[in-house]
Write a protein that binds this DNA or RNA. Structure first.
Lengths: 337, 337
DNA sequence: TTGTAGGCGTTATCAC
DNA sequence: GTGATAACGCCTACAA
């Protein structure tokens, strides 16, 4: 059933039905009522494809996520859920595209098939082919994370470098001298994944400034890896008294390793880093850490995208969030030996 | 740029371009080459909306997920990721719809706006208004989980009742006499969430059959709730020596509670249930449990849906998976007291 | 206040 | 082997 059918039954023309629906032109109250009755009775809804074709917009956003094979982390999941919710608040639907590199069918379909009005991309690399690809297109997009040279693009991110720097200063203030950064996986670092690279930089910078002995270790996004990683640190560098981490998925393993080693936090060992509040609070003891405000970021990304779609000529905007470090109970003075 | 532009530049008609693209009609080799050159040069891609309008299908699936406010669990996340991936393998895009009840804008848009060729729904209630809604529509759908009277609908599910029954028998075989089921949240049970209700039934049935004293407690999907829940069990029913659980999110809390109570698993206490392999293996000690094969289920759901879309008259099909319980190290004989 | 008609970009049915 | 041309269902000037 289509708009013509409604028009016929209501005894009006198709345009009148269309206008009654959109409100872009006044319609006599009586006519409108008749139309609405017919619509309600038949449960009519305009065909989305036809509307998109005529209007030149799809009322749909794309969200580009990492391929499923690489298991999503909790933070990524929060991004997805919140983006979808925020989009729904604007009456926009969300199309998911699991895309890795640049030669991706799903990604190409979306970018080039005018299937969506705009794109949100997450898990951005410093030099990201998808960003390059989107730039040469006229399709509006916003990234969660940012490339090395964001130029005129739109993005939201957390200032990992600053946060990790601050963590190091905090540990230095507590008299720790030997610290380690437990980073994300080596593959991510090698691929130039922003948070992993920027955290390393911030870590080394602050450590040097405070004269600390500092080392960075990569750790896969899994509990088991966290455990192995910590045990290796203990074995190779027994002098280390504190770690900074941005690896949430490894946390349970870290917890177990601490327990196995008989270490009491923060008496014997300090832990801090960039960890979503929810996880930080579930740690034992609760982690002194900077939050990754995934929901705020996702909401912001959607709002920016909506704005950019509405006004394609608008000046580029971005937001570099710098959440405060919440002092909880996982950091303390360097243990006296 | 559109198909007409390509046709003009290649010196042919639009239909020829269309056929060259679809291969539904032979095209002279020379013509085809010329057309492809122009297409490559201009980077042309057919407009998805126009194509959908003309073809009467969108090459898009909808995945209905729980609203973001209710935080997704790991298993749900696996469903989402795998559905998207499996759909991509069929060159289908996936539209996400976060929907709770029946009065949901996003859900209505999708169901009624002919935005998709089919729908996959998850987190099904025994009496689910969304299933009812979809049934009166001609839109093909498959559910992950199943309603109480699935009649002629298409679905995939895990046989929670059978699995939990088997867990109870396993514990009874180990001489346990007092057992508890740690279920999902009270709200989910009250809402008639399939796995929660069916697990309860299977638990009680098997316990009665084996003459065990059996109690069911609800537990929110959070580590903290798991901890509180276990401590309450210990306080109120000290005679309990084993639990069965289907609540994955509560697991870390359970782990901590066990540790706090100074209980060694399985020497002092046994744990089993329906838990995804990945999580079961990360527990300490690894859990004897039945897997929730989320990926298999999601892949199956997509395959069924594709099949149903291709042949709307096909007989209804479903799959009730019955994974085996993997014997790991979390269950042992009832401790002698 | 309402109707007519053209266009959005494809696909598909006729002809030739 | 190829070209007109009519759908597909909606939106929106332009007229009345």
């Amino acid at each position: 059933m289509n708009i013509g059918e409604i028009a016929r039954r209501a005894g009006v023309s198709r345009s009148t039905v269309s206008y009654a629906l959109s409100g872009k032109r006044p319609v006599a109250a009586a006519t409108a009522r008749r139309i609405n009755e017919v619509i309600a009775e038949l449960g009519y809804r305009p065909n989305a494809s036809a509307r998109a074709l005529a209007e030149g917009r799809t009322r749909t956003l794309a969200l580009v996520i990492p391929p499923a094979s690489r298991r999503l982390t909790n933070v990524q999941l929060d991004f997805v859920a919140t983006v979808v919710e925020a989009a729904a608040a604007h009456d926009l639907d969300v199309l998911l595209s699991p895309s890795g590199g640049d030669h991706d069918r799903s990604f190409e379909r979306i970018v080039t098939g005018r299937r969506v009005d705009g794109v949100i991309m997450m898990e951005i690399l410093l030099d990201d082919p998808r960003v390059t690809r989107l730039r040469q297109n006229e399709l509006p997009f916003v990234t969660i994370g940012h490339v090395e040279h964001p130029g005129g693009s739109w993005w939201v991110d957390v200032d990992y470098a600053a946060l990790v720097r601050r963590c190091v200063h905090h540990l230095a203030d507590l008299a720790h001298r030997h610290v380690v950064l437990i980073n994300r996986s080596a593959e991510l670092v090698a691929a130039g994944y922003g948070p992993a690279v920027r955290s390393t930089a911030g870590f080394q910078e602050a450590a040097e400034q405070r004269g600390l002995s500092a080392h960075v270790v990569c750790c896969a996004d899994e509990p088991a890896a966290g455990l192995a990683c910590f045990e290796q640190i203990r074995a190779r560098r027994p002098e280390v008294t504190a770690v900074v981490t941005i690896n949430e998925a490894a946390l349970p393993g870290l917890q177990r390793a601490l327990h196995r080693a008989g270490l009491v936090v923060p008496r014997d060992f300090s832990i801090t880093g960039v960890i979503a509040d929810r996880l930080a609070e579930d740690f034992h003891p609760p982690l002194t850490a900077a939050d990754v405000p995934a929901e705020e970021m996702a909401r912001l990304a959607v709002d920016l995208l909506v704005e950019r779609i509405a006004d394609p000529a608008a000046d580029p905007r971005h937001a570099l969030l710098d959440p405060v470090i919440s002092l909880r109970s996982s950091t303390g003075a360097r243990p006296a030996r």
